[in-house]
Write a protein that binds this DNA or RNA. Sequence first.
DNA 1: TCACGTCAAGCAGAT
DNA 2: ATCTGCTTGACGTGA
Length: 303
Amino acid sequence: MKIGYPCINRSIGCTSNKTFRLKSYSEEKMITTISNNLLCLKKILQYNINHNIFFFRISSDLVPFASHPICIFKWQHYFKNDFKEIGEIINQNKIRISMHPDQFIVLNSIKEDVVKRSINELIYHAEVLDLFNLDFSAKIQLHIGGAYGDKKRSMQRFIDNYLTLNEKIKKRLIIENDDKIYSVKDCLMISEKTHIPVLFDTFHHCLLNYNESIKECIYQIQKTWQQKDGIPMVDYSSQQPNSTKGKHAESIDLIDFIDFINQTKPTDLDIMLEIKNKEKSAQQAEQLLRQDKRFYHPVIIRE
DNA sequence: TCACGTCAAGCAGAT
DNA sequence: ATCTGCTTGACGTGA
């Protein structure tokens, strides 16, 4: 079991998702920005290692405009050695990595150009993980997409479009339940036909479900992960008290977290904490688990 | 130096 | 029709 947090570290004073305006695009800006982002990513990973955090989501903005037609700069070649060096840090320290393309990536869109742009963005994500030389346990997590007034057909469109993807993406793509349209059950149905691993998001599940317990969900989703996919990933977050429904909490509620951990036994999971204060909550959770051995050493269920 | 309008991109649901 | 939220900030112009 590893504990992680997404994209941003608030403690070290730099970010790995620096960008600039499309209007001011230049090769020079690409070089300075990507240099900054890779250097900062290295610092974040080093910080994480020093604080026993071995799961991290790399920002999709690591290389700005990577899949935009304006970008003809061969960043993959220019930064080859930097990627290799960071990849070695990741591999040597057995850091689990995920990426999460943002809301514009809709594989099941009814608009052909949206699908095309989405696939280009997925190619970029897979390229990043390949340049780090990571195995196929490094994943790209994606929601199913829109419903367009016909959920069944929209699910089929997701499957059809998924089947057209190249192997480099297919080996890394995983699907995640969302809070409005596609529940865990829907993801499992798609997984049954495609063998895509399902990432369970607890908070989304609380907002959209068919009354399945967390225990039941964990049992079902862990079956979708094969050996080569690594330990199942889970997104954990909780509701910010006294705020609009669906808003992520500012800091972790450790009582709620332990309650969740107890419900996931005996399955081993890597848990991504989607909580605003990022590394602070991750450290708290990690310390709690490390200090109390009852929560570690889970029995692994495998088919 | 700082405030704040705006930023490549989609979609659904609320207002 | 327009705004908000999503993993959410942060760029960069103009005062």
